[in-house]
Design a protein around this nucleic acid. Structure first.
Lengths: 112, 112
DNA sequence: TTGTCGTACTACGACAGATGAAGTATTTCA
DNA sequence: TGAAATACTTCATCTGTCGTAGTACGACAA
């Protein structure tokens, strides 16, 4: 069974997270579930990778956090939600461009 | 100008080098030139990255080294050539498979 | 009501690959 | 003769990932 090595995905965890936040704010657990679903279970992000990505990206200004409960009445567990910023959107766009270039480059060395 | 970040290419430097060694044994300087040529200058591998990849891959048994001069008479500078091993060929094949999977996964999060 | 499972995190340390900086030495060529 | 190209090596640093561990709350079943 072929598995994705962390060295490969390294540059794209942030991009994946941002692409999910592009639709609406979300939080750790939900994002990890979504990544799993979107990739049909082919990629499962590690908890520590995910939460350290949040810290890094918030510091870089790509996301903003806010704490909220499950519903508007304040019931349920409190969660830390993240919202993408304009800088985050720019970063995401750049990463998408970079991906096209990277793909071109890597594929020159790949045999199908 | 979009540039490839090291975090992205991280998992594929070894693969690129091996793909070049697949044709014939080669050495550092020549390989770095070839990578540049093949990618139309889009990717230039750093010297230290290249040589540390040699060390790592030789330790892993993916390549073997031998020292040789430029010509058979022993003229010219001595160079350390590297030859791909069977294990290296297997590793390369695995990486090619992994690439297809990685591409699928990443592209689910990319907007063109 | 007790225990287990799922949810929702945080802290910490270790590791590996990439890189910058610096240096060495030989060869080629103008 | 001297600069540029070739062909490396050493070393320290940085960053993102990941393993381990632990906390805490809520839901639900026995």
């Amino acid at each position: 069974m072929v598995e994705i090595s962390s060295d490969v995905i390294r540059g794209y965890n942030d991009t994946m997270i941002l692409s999910i936040l592009l639709k609406e704010p979300s939080y750790g657990y939900e994002i990890s579930k979504e990544i799993k679903t979107i990739t049909d279970g082919k990629y499962i992000i590690k908890e520590t990778t995910l939460y350290s990505a949040f810290t890094r990206m918030e510091k870089n200004g790509y996301i903003e956090s806010f704490v909220a409960s499950q519903d508007l009445e304040g019931n349920g567990k409190k969660r830390t939600y993240y919202r993408i910023t304009d800088a985050g959107r720019d970063f995401y766009k750049d990463k998408c461009e970079e991906w096209e270039l990277t793909k071109d480059v890597v594929e020159k060395f790949i045999t199908k």
